[in-house]
Design a protein around this nucleic acid. Sequence first.
DNA 1: TAATACGTTTAGAATATTCTAAATATTCTA
DNA 2: TAGAATATTTAGAATATTCTAAACGTATTA
Lengths: 176, 176
Amino acid sequence: MNGNTNDSTFQEIREGLIEALGRITSFWGFSRVMGQIYGLLYLSPRPLSLTEISQSLSISKGNVSINVRALERWNMVKQVWVKGDRKDYYEAETDFWNIIRGVLREREKKEFAQALNSISMLLGKVDKGKRAKKREEISFIHERLTKLLDFIKLMDNIVTILLKIDDIKGGFLLKR
Amino acid sequence: MNGNTNDSTFQEIREGLIEALGRITSFWGFSRVMGQIYGLLYLSPRPLSLTEISQSLSISKGNVSINVRALERWNMVKQVWVKGDRKDYYEAETDFWNIIRGVLREREKKEFAQALNSISMLLGKVDKGKRAKKREEISFIHERLTKLLDFIKLMDNIVTILLKIDDIKGGFLLKR
DNA sequence: TAATACGTTTAGAATATTCTAAATATTCTA
DNA sequence: TAGAATATTTAGAATATTCTAAACGTATTA
């Protein structure tokens, strides 16, 4: 090193971010490759093609294809048009709150709804049997399920409110 | 079915919750078995031993052992003493906010710290090379990394504040 | 239309994870 | 201390996931 920020330093930084984001996405339940691709795009001054991504990360084109599609689904990557080139190009979405919003909407929201459904159904089953012998056991189970259901409802409401605020105000609470 | 809530209905409900919680924990990045064990304990009026859990869920004792330990680490299950019995018994922690608090503290918090570290380090590398030729590229990378770092800091702060509030007030914001 | 350049899908290989059964360690009781 | 009851660890089997290379399909150019 000579004190200048040269190409190899850039390379080092890129690889560092790729690794870091790979770890993070993996931690949050996405695929590691998604984070790596996102990291690469995030530090690229211009959109990259599928082939370039594949080569930069030493990952097969098929794999890149699948993961880029996933990233698009999660609002983390946008496809862009490059004039005079018929390849598809991709760039990183840099509005993180927008990404979170998308994830909350598609993933957490759905999961809460499903949980809510399951537990409600189970509670329904308890309530059907009023004349049972085992009073205590019924009331115990009823109480526990109700408590759980209330909690899930509350979480679901919080998420809903967050999304509403964000929709209406364009993110006054969350954006910077 | 005869309209009464009988044992087989209880069984059905238990299995329903076990399945639902298994799905949820799996979704949130924990093992499925953890959710199942938690579900079983959550609807059990008395603490259960390792062997009972193993039999109820048709899972090897070894597996139960590992996952119960994980549940304890996450504050989701407590070991309890049953007089006159030298087996270990376990029961579900029913304060969900307490559980969340623990998870935030041990998992998210740590992960944010690590991310913060990585990105700061990368930014440091950029700043070292002031006299480089590629001015634009430097400022581009600098800007992007700063933006990312700020975001992570903000998230980290939010979590920190949540935990502080909860510590001081005993959870006035979160508890019900 | 033929040849080319690309993206997607797929079958199976590589890898990682989870699980069990058995071995080992620990704790308790007599 | 010996023996019994329990919990934990571990080696390897079972399973699930991820990845690649090649096949395929589609659009574009010559």
